[in-house]
């Protein structure tokens, strides 16, 4: 096998992943509600965790502020909100997700709530290889009307052998040079790349918020 063969295989694999993920052929998202109720501020609740790693909730939560803020939104301080809700009788993510959104508007003054469910989070070690997976779905809800403004779901896998990783992960892996010690650290390091796919994709991700220079401008 030559290096070229490996790369061609990798590109084929990446294309398959992208098609499976729906980002090539999917219809543009219907932003009708989003445009009618554009939020200025978003509170991200600690995610529900459907993965097998207990670290998923906070390992993923601590990667979400940056993409949302860089998209132009005010993002409430995740740890302060988490602590505040815990001290007010909501000890877990599950209980926080049960709070009516109007109540979150009243307590926090948030325009919208991002409900996240982490579906996969962790690394599987194989004989000569390891595969890190992060998968999440997210729902942005307007706190005044309860309307769903936006929904998305993405899956990202990265193999320790670069030939098996998808295109985005490949491009980014050059920047990730530190040794990854634990299985959930690797998933945490991969989460920002998942967030790019989830929040920033044209016609699928979040609209620009008020602090972004492109706010209220037509898409590029």
């Amino acid at each position: 096998m030559t290096g070229c063969g490996g790369l061609a295989r990798a590109i084929g694999y990446a294309a398959a992943v992208m098609l499976a993920g729906g980002c090539v052929t999917a219809q543009p998202y219907d932003y009708t509600n989003y445009r009618l109720h554009p939020p200025r501020s978003i509170v991200v609740l600690p995610p529900l965790n459907q993965s097998t790693a207990v670290e998923a909730t906070y390992g993923y939560l601590t990667t979400v502020t940056r993409p949302l803020a860089e998209r132009g939104y005010y993002v409430f301080p995740i740890a302060v909100v988490d602590q505040f809700l815990k001290e007010n009788g909501l000890p877990s993510a599950g209980e926080m997700h049960q709070v009516p959104v109007e109540k979150l508007a009243e307590i926090l003054g948030a325009d919208a709530v991002l409900f996240v469910t982490v579906e996969q989070y962790g690394t599987k070690y194989l004989v000569i290889d390891s595969v890190t997976s992060v998968a999440a779905r997210a729902r942005l809800v307007d706190t005044r009307t309860g309307l769903v403004l936006w929904e998305g779901r993405r899956v990202l896998q990265q193999s320790s052998s670069s030939g098996q990783s998808n295109l985005v992960a490949m491009a980014i892996s050059a920047a990730i040079t530190q040794v990854l010690n634990t299985s959930t650290d690797a998933a945490h390091r991969l989460s920002p790349q998942l967030n790019l796919l989830l929040f920033n994709q044209k016609d699928q991700g979040l609209l620009y918020g008020p602090y972004h220079p492109r706010y209220n401008q037509p898409p590029e």
């Binding site: 601590t62 860089e70 132009g72 945490h188």
Partner: peptide
């Protein structure tokens, strides 16, 4: 270019939870 100077804000919160 980023809108904000991020420093270690997210990383510190991650480590304090981890």
């Amino acid at each position: 270019p980023t809108l904000y100077s991020w420093g270690q804000y997210e990383e510190l919160i991650y480590r304090s939870y981890a």
